[in-house]
Design a protein around this nucleic acid. Sequence first.
DNA 1: GTGCACTATGACAACGTTGTCTCCCCCCGG
DNA 2: CCGGGGGGAGACAACGTTGTCATAGTGCAC
Lengths: 327, 327
Amino acid sequence: MSDVARLAGVSIKTVSRVVNDEPAVHPDTAERVMAAIEQLGFRRNLGARNLRRGSTTGTIGLIVEDVGNPFYSELNRAVERIATSFGRQVLTGSSEENSDRERELVLEFCARRVDGILVVPAGLQHGYLVPEMRAGTPVVFIDRPAGDIVADTVLVDNLGGTIEAVTHLAKHGHRRIAFLGDSPDIFTAAERLRGFREGCVRNGISYDESLVSMRTPTQEGIGDAVKRLLHGPDAATAVIAGNNRVAVHLLRALAHADYRPAMVGFDDFELADLLDPPVTVVAHDVSALGHAAAELLFARVQGDQSPPRKVVLPVHLVARGSGEVAP
Amino acid sequence: MSDVARLAGVSIKTVSRVVNDEPAVHPDTAERVMAAIEQLGFRRNLGARNLRRGSTTGTIGLIVEDVGNPFYSELNRAVERIATSFGRQVLTGSSEENSDRERELVLEFCARRVDGILVVPAGLQHGYLVPEMRAGTPVVFIDRPAGDIVADTVLVDNLGGTIEAVTHLAKHGHRRIAFLGDSPDIFTAAERLRGFREGCVRNGISYDESLVSMRTPTQEGIGDAVKRLLHGPDAATAVIAGNNRVAVHLLRALAHADYRPAMVGFDDFELADLLDPPVTVVAHDVSALGHAAAELLFARVQGDQSPPRKVVLPVHLVARGSGEVAP
DNA sequence: GTGCACTATGACAACGTTGTCTCCCCCCGG
DNA sequence: CCGGGGGGAGACAACGTTGTCATAGTGCAC
């Protein structure tokens, strides 16, 4: 900036005025300054600016489990859209379902003085966030609630969705339904399992633990589960996939199987409608999740001090075929 | 920081020494300082730190067309992985295939003094980058080359891949092959079209422009193209989808059609193997693309001054079924 | 001619850090 | 007993900006 000032023969304050479009600069002077800026390729340092102004940094942080997962990337996109409309940039990070990594990312973002943080929490303990939140960094939890603190949260109706899935299958005559979930440490997985139980109860199906698997989904793990649950005299006639990754692994496992049970997935996914049979899912609007969370965050950024909110977004069952077959 | 200093009864410089793990601090003093930090919830301001040190900001920028597109989100993930290994955070932005937006994002990132920029360019003119690059911000172009400047670039073998696709179809007896691309302004689309022509030539197929569509893919557009190209006496017996979005739209259009031509897609996608028939694709390693670009970027960040490099990653045809049917 | 309002500009401090330099104190060798 | 060396700590400036205040010049009314 001082280089520009020297070249234009003015003080750095005048340069500052020009780059900030402040009035009270003579047009001729402004033009000379602009020319100097152009010539030197000057670009003002936003870091210094934010430091001096004590204002917001114009960035927000988004932490998900894996930015490469289509579910989270759609979320990312929705968040970015809102952030852009508020003139903010988005810093992203993948926690890899690791609470230490999550914490590291959050604290790093805080040190960068992001204006707010959106997080799909991996851990169950968020006490470390209290000082940051007290210091004025708003945090909104997405898809899963905070572990041990009260904070803004946007969830989907995991319980209701799974109940609906069970009911749907029961309506088509299924009495032995398997549930393939994820690690029970993950809120959504635990919640959907709860929904599964509740769904069984409501439909007069005795809940059979041997038909449930709660493991981090891998192709082999799901393959084994399929072998175990879908064969033999007591085999399940239908199966619920607890999330989009489980669904993909399950579909792959079933593709080479001789026997195709009825299936309902939780989370919609691309091409689900083109498979054979098309996959019935409990769908929810991932974009809406991101939008709602980001809107809530920016409300906080702009000073909304109302008590923490908990938003639960609806889900709806999309019957495509895989869930509408008789046992 | 001065609050911490006051509380601990030391100077701010000593606090600085503690947070930076500098030696020459008495353990007792350090402990007092740590306690004060803990009590006040102090977190050092990285912006101020970077300003003072004149060092790197520890961030890089990544600009893609749409962070929500699985192709780019996989890229994003790969970039993030490398960035993390170099202790950097990633700022992401979607250009929406709009060169003005691309420029805006780049300049915004530069103003934030990112250590480097990775960009899947939307525009064809990148002169605006020259001052930034001269000022020391390395830029690596991904998937598409820079328009009018010389810069590091990482591409995939679009030409070779499409030639291979044509050859594959020709081998299975197809002589009338349609090509559904994307806007010809997009480098990869143009290049793949070039590969299509070359593939026709090499296989003794007369290139028929009426079998080519180069439009931004929409479900309707692809539907119309299917109706036009795959019906009538001169109908194509095979079709090449120019990228993953075209492929998805095409599959959806064909799902409800009475006639299924042979098909090969460019870009692999999840579940391609589970469709009926499984989709033959020209696959390439998106992660490798991100890795290579990020590695190259960090080499530049760390001072590599060698001439700009152009890396072309190989592609390979994955025969799954949809491309191995006779006319 | 004097005072006043207004425009255009600059000097300086401050944002939160850290690098450099200086200072003080204590220990040890001669 | 004195001098040198090293450990521990603080004062101060500087990073690149911008907010505040001061200053100089101009035009206009009296």
